[in-house]
Simulated scan of single mutants.
Amino acid sequence: MSRDEQFSGTMPVRDAHAFDIAALDAWMRDHVAGYTPGLAVAQFKGGQSNPTYKLTDGAGRAYVLRRKPPGKLLKSAHAVDREYRVMTALGRHTDVPVARTHGLCTDDGVIGTWFYVMDHVDGRIFWDAAPAGLTPEQRGAVFDAMNETIAALHRVDPAAVGLGDYGKAGNYFARQIARWSTQYRDDAQAGRIAAMDRLVEWLPDNIPPGDETRIVHGDFRIDNLIFDAEAPRIRAVLDWELSTLGHPLADFAYHCLMYRMPPQGFTGLMGQDIEALGLPSEAQYVAAYCQRTGRDPIPADEFDFYIAFNMFRLAGILHGILGRVRRGTAASAHAASQGAMCEPLAKLAWAQVERLAA
């Protein structure tokens, strides 16, 4: 089964994520302008962390609901209120493409957990780093749109859009390494991984010099973007759960993991004929981002650290998914296969460190 078949579209709501539709219908009547009573609910197949639903009102208008999952949750995880805040601010004050938000509910009594509602954005989602069914020229245009969009995000002044307090300024790498190390160690049910243990020890002592602060998405990749159905234009950036204030090069290097990851399991580009696919090389892609953000070229050794850091961070996310699978609170039917990729990715990250050390 292809990733498109696995993750595209909707399915009936899973029993573990069902809720009182009548209660939500009442909340929508009170909080969403233009809503017509008569709610139908389906669950999106994709998404590992926060259960996501397609809502259709009595007039056929579509919305999307994102909620915290039920059950015991790790501290600071599943922050739907933060997703709502950053999307609302960017939608009001910038040209960064996001879905229009309608309301945030912090009353657990409505559907059992916090949630927010936003517009349903029509368009295409590509589930592979090199989208099938496109010409080389179209693929190149898709990559150029991604590059421009993440550069546009990193050009935003957080304070100017009311997000100056959206996270801590400075020491992003140290704080993130500490956060994911703590979450990794605290999730005993997910188990220990030797490569993760080594990364937890090595990364804090090898952070490159220099610091910057911008709004970072935290999970900027091709399958978190909705493209226009007809043109290589991004209509909405999705899944802002991991967004915060942080170092823009950490965010951009995470996006560039596609160049360093294999196609099997990680949907990367490693080993593929980049030129034949119509895609820019990693060096060309990084240079385009630097030009769009007005920065000097990034030293190769520093960029390699950013790559290793992001592999560790992604392995930490997958470790959390693995823990939710074992606790029975995972949002997606495909979460088990996602969690199983934690150890291979941690090993890949440590291999990157060994190359740097050599």
Rank of each mutant, 00 (worst) to 15 (best):
D57G: 00
V216E: 03
S337I: 15
D251F: 07
I222Y: 05
V121W: 08
A129L: 06
P208C: 00
W180Y: 11
A62R: 11
V64S: 05
T293E: 08
I207K: 04
L65C: 05
I222A: 10
P37R: 08
I321E: 05
P299Q: 04
L73K: 11
A40I: 06
A159C: 05
A288H: 09
D205N: 10
R326E: 13
G46R: 13
H247C: 06
L314T: 15
Y116E: 05
H17F: 08
P299I: 00
F173D: 05
T244M: 02
V13L: 07
G60M: 13
Y172C: 03
G38P: 02
A77W: 15
V121Y: 11
S332R: 00
E282F: 10
I193W: 00
R326V: 11
P51D: 12
N310C: 01
A308M: 09
P262W: 00
G164W: 06
L277C: 11
Q6D: 10
T52S: 03
R214S: 12
Y259M: 06
M261F: 06
V156F: 04
G271W: 09
T10D: 08
Y35H: 09
A18N: 07
A59E: 11
P12N: 07
N50F: 07
A77T: 14
A174Q: 12
H17G: 04
I150V: 10
G34K: 14
I21E: 07
L356W: 13
G34P: 11
W350C: 00
M28C: 01
P37T: 11
A145D: 13
A283C: 05
S332D: 12
V96K: 08
A315F: 00
M11N: 03
I321P: 01
R327K: 12
G123I: 03
R313T: 10
D20G: 01
H255E: 12
R192G: 06
G164S: 03
R235N: 13
N50Y: 01
A18D: 11
S337D: 14
Q138P: 13
A174V: 03
G164C: 04
V32C: 12
E148C: 05
D122Y: 04
I307Q: 03
K75C: 13
K54P: 08
Q183E: 04
G71R: 11
L249W: 02
C105T: 02
P262L: 03
D95T: 15
L314F: 15
V110E: 04
